[in-house]
Simulated assay, not measured.
Amino acid sequence: MTDWWIFRGENQPHDGIRRLPPPQRWRAFDGGPPGDGELPEWSPLDLERASFYQADPQVLDLVNAALYLRRPLLVTGKPGVGKSTLALAVAYELGLGPVLRWPITSRTTLQDGLYAYDAIRRLHDVTTAQADDRKRAEAGNGAGGESDIGRYITLGPLGTALLPRELPRVLLVDEIDKSDIDLPNDLLDVFEEGEFSIPELARAARADRAEVQVATADHGGEVTVREGRVRCSAFPFVVLTSNQEREFPSAFLRRCVPLQILPPGPEELMRIVQARLDDEVDAQAADMVAEFVRLRDSGDLATDHLLNALYLTFHAARAGGDREELARRLLRRLQPPVV
């Protein structure tokens, strides 16, 4: 039975997210009031990738489990199996706006995801303002106003995802296995509490500036932060991707819904090819898919390699080229050497 699915992998937007039952009491958040302003526009490339995603029932089950439980989805699998595209597909089908992306490197810290504070720019502006004040004082004019600290703060992708909204945003934390060893544990409190504080704004609140306007990671305009705290009302749908290059702490794993995406088989590959290449697919594509699967099993080919090879050979054949030989050479060249 699939009647409980909210995300159905249908590649067509719908309002099923509004049928999502209330969260468990310990996953309910009271941030707000929700500020559902205009969402940014999708990029054409992301829109196309999202609308062609092909999901199998196992993927759909676990995506919906994460939606119901308000828990991050930890997606593992080889490069090219569609881990990142899954986040796009969920955001597109459920009408949750463009995906917020947080690419992870070995130097990434928790604050990078939450917010950025441009202290150097503020120091420069304060110094300049003080010099202007002295000139005004010498001229017998009054002092200028204090600079707005909100001009120097921009919420990061995680911080933007935690803004109070009626409907959740989708956050893609890409390649978290490349992070410093401390980052997964640093994320635990944020994932459990659904909130974070900005000390610079908390100090401003104590100076009678309880509400400050700051910029967001997706350039969606300014939002109001009250008393230096950001707390969600709908926990974001968080997709953490991993190429399985490291293990994670058990406390972190307990808070995630695990999903392993296996490389697609021949039938699924044909569905992907038909969805992406449309009228360019013909009977010979099945032979190329079979050759691709054989080579992939002994190497590290991604589905993109197959799509690129098919696209190129279709056009080469139209111009009189030897399509079969070109496909064979291209796939073998893309295959990494066995060591």
Results as ranks from 00 to 15, higher is better:
236 P>L: 12
174 D>V: 05
271 R>S: 11
137 A>C: 01
274 Q>V: 11
229 R>G: 00
219 H>K: 15
315 H>V: 07
92 Y>W: 15
305 H>Y: 02
296 R>D: 00
314 F>N: 08
259 L>E: 04
242 S>E: 02
327 A>T: 13
42 W>Y: 15
19 R>W: 05
336 P>L: 05
272 I>G: 06
53 Y>F: 15
307 L>R: 10
156 G>P: 01
327 A>H: 08
123 L>Q: 12
68 Y>G: 01
247 E>D: 13
242 S>F: 04
245 E>K: 09
222 E>G: 06
182 D>G: 10
292 F>W: 05
198 I>W: 03
27 R>V: 09
117 Y>A: 12
305 H>I: 07
107 R>T: 14
60 L>F: 04
194 G>A: 09
276 R>F: 03
80 G>T: 10
294 R>S: 07
134 R>T: 11
333 R>K: 15
104 I>G: 02
323 R>H: 07
204 A>T: 07
65 A>Y: 05
127 T>G: 04
124 H>G: 09
313 T>R: 13
300 D>R: 14
68 Y>S: 01
307 L>I: 14
129 A>I: 06
204 A>N: 03
255 R>F: 02
255 R>D: 01
165 R>T: 14
202 A>M: 10
284 Q>D: 11
276 R>A: 12
71 R>F: 04
326 L>E: 09
316 A>M: 13
221 G>I: 10
13 P>M: 14
13 P>T: 15
180 D>Y: 07
251 A>C: 02
144 G>W: 01
163 L>Q: 08
305 H>R: 08
74 L>P: 00
58 Q>D: 07
84 S>V: 12
47 L>R: 15
43 S>E: 15
69 L>V: 05
43 S>I: 11
211 E>C: 01
31 G>P: 00
201 L>N: 06
214 V>T: 06
168 P>C: 07
85 T>P: 00
256 C>Y: 05
188 L>E: 02
78 K>L: 11
330 L>V: 14
188 L>C: 03
16 G>L: 14
